[in-house]
Design a protein around this nucleic acid. Sequence first.
DNA 1: ATCGAGATATACCGATCGGTTTCTTTTGTC
DNA 2: GACAAAAGAAACCGATCGGTATATCTCGAT
Lengths: 187, 187
Amino acid sequence: MKKNSKREQIVDVALKLFYKDGFNATGVEKIRETANVSKKTLYNHFKSKDELILAVLRRRDEQFRNNFMRTVERIGKTPQERLEAVFDACDEWFNSKDFCGCMFINAAAEFTEADNPCHVIAAEHLRLMNDYITGLAKDAGVENPEKLAEQISFLMEGATVQAHVSGDKDAAQKAKAMALVFINQSA
Amino acid sequence: MKKNSKREQIVDVALKLFYKDGFNATGVEKIRETANVSKKTLYNHFKSKDELILAVLRRRDEQFRNNFMRTVERIGKTPQERLEAVFDACDEWFNSKDFCGCMFINAAAEFTEADNPCHVIAAEHLRLMNDYITGLAKDAGVENPEKLAEQISFLMEGATVQAHVSGDKDAAQKAKAMALVFINQSA
DNA sequence: ATCGAGATATACCGATCGGTTTCTTTTGTC
DNA sequence: GACAAAAGAAACCGATCGGTATATCTCGAT
């Protein structure tokens, strides 16, 4: 068994449980038994539950953004198409079977104070997503890439909330239609 | 002491604690001692913590929408102005001292299943907010009030997330600028 | 003045929380 | 095959969880 496989196993399991049931509602014991490891092992890899939560959030950020970028680049071939494809990637996400909203919005909801490490990571995630979109906008050669990226980010986040809270499976396409106004007026 | 004053006292205290610290992270004992009531009294008014949470969410919905509508109608005098004033109301909200995001987005984050009673109330709240905006849009005599209201709702929710997670105090004004595009093109 | 409803404080319940300890077993490395 | 590191099982810790029970007290309506 590889060096980090236990650790990854724990993070994987914790990620699923935290995402579905929330951070505070998920006990360490539940994670331990689901991951099929001993408590010793778990606390061997993580000093505390808080540290595990942080590890999970970092993993999720990496995983999510990688998958998101791959999807955008699969769907859109030109820079302009990719700006629009952001919402098609959201569409796939919103309609995937285990969609439970944005894990970082959820994290910020449970850890409301701005200086909480989990909240900080959540803010960073949104910033990194925004940075990616800014890159796409620059590639598309729009007038004000930062501004357009921010507008697209607002729409993405609104759509994510709508998809999760209200179960609107068409939220991504509605947001896309709105985004087109800004994309076209910037082009 | 009035008939319902104890009950209201408990709901008020629980509302503040749940909003700041989250639902699962706030224990009944903490609520009890903060509200200065006995446990007997608390469970005399609410069968369980879950029932208290539901009571809190209903109270918040009523309180929030009332305050929101009053603010919109204070700031905007004409129907068109009121559509825009929605974002000025958000601005005040985002910059109020105890802003911790939207309590219903937070609730949906902790109770992710769509059929959870708390999640249902959260969805209803967003729908009622949307209904209010639809009314404003109808008053303004726009072409497609339902569509415009939905667009404004998306922008509000995106701004709320941005304001809370990323601490963007200007989120409401950014969303307002975006909304103007849709409002003007609908007028 | 009395009586009952509702409030109080307090102790208690079993379960679970996050986390530690002890001791044994497995495992990869030299 | 020896040895240390890692993992295992399980008991245990004090604290807190949501919720109940008991016994006293306060107070308004009759």
